[in-house]
Amino acid sequence: MRGTTLETQASVDSPSVPKNPLNGVAGISVVGVSKSFGTFKAVRELNLRVEPGEIMGLLGPNGAGKSTTMKLILGVVKPDSGTIRIFGKDVAREAVETKQLVGYVPETAQLYEFLSGVEYLDFVADMYGMAAAVRKREITQFLSALELAGHENQMISGYSQGMKQKIAITAALMHHPRLLILDESLNGLDPRSARIVKDVIRSLGREGYSILFSTHVLEIAEAICDRVAIMDQGKILASGTVPELRAKAGLPGSSLEEVFLKITGTSDLRDIVAELSK
């Protein structure tokens, strides 16, 4: 059965959730949010809460509503109903202030391709009002760590997809946002850079950053996320820690992939595979 709802509200007092140093103010608080595009309902009555210091994985098949959810939280798409708060600030009413707190890496890096890598980062640093000394230090460090040093003065139009993604990740991280929204941000990265980014994400989580992270690579989600929410057809079908999800799916000891397939109702793929293999 597709779309079995195991839990629709994320647990606030889950044992894996770090202590909230902000007196209960969530990094992300999404309450009853819906969004339609014409007759298509992209997000339905969504409730989601991510604490400071928590890494929340958002999983789901293509078209599940993950990217729309992230854009709703970022404030670039407006909900039809419901409220979204980032560290207590209303995204609809304090758009500029909340964006100041967020770093966002979109599914596909949308960069100004006529700028060089370092010019683009300088542009983003200006957007967030970073001081000259800080931006120089941050940009230099990130470029070096992600092996972009030596390419920083080239126009982005000549970059590979992976290099563009590294620039987008640097742009999202360098101003030290309190909330990171990463939409399949490891796509296209080489193993070394992917490892660095994963470690940086873990480290930022420990430092108290809230992180919402979507990926199709379930091993990564299992490895770095404190909690995971599984979405399909605009709804959260289940959320919790990976062991909790295993228990809820009745699949103790199984992989997150098996849990995901069961919850999204796509576990029996044998007929499809057999048909494609003919």
Binding site: V118, D122, D126, G129, A132, K136, N153, S157, G158
Partner: peptide, 28 residues
């Protein structure tokens, strides 16, 4: 084609445009 727009080391700009009345964001 790979175009290298400059060979000099990165140094953050300080604003001529801001002296014309633009904010840092606007100047960017």
């Amino acid at each position: 084609v790979t175009v290298e727009v400059t060979e000099s080391e990165y140094s953050p700009r300080t604003g001529f445009l801001q002296s014309l009345g633009l904010s840092a964001v606007g100047a960017a």
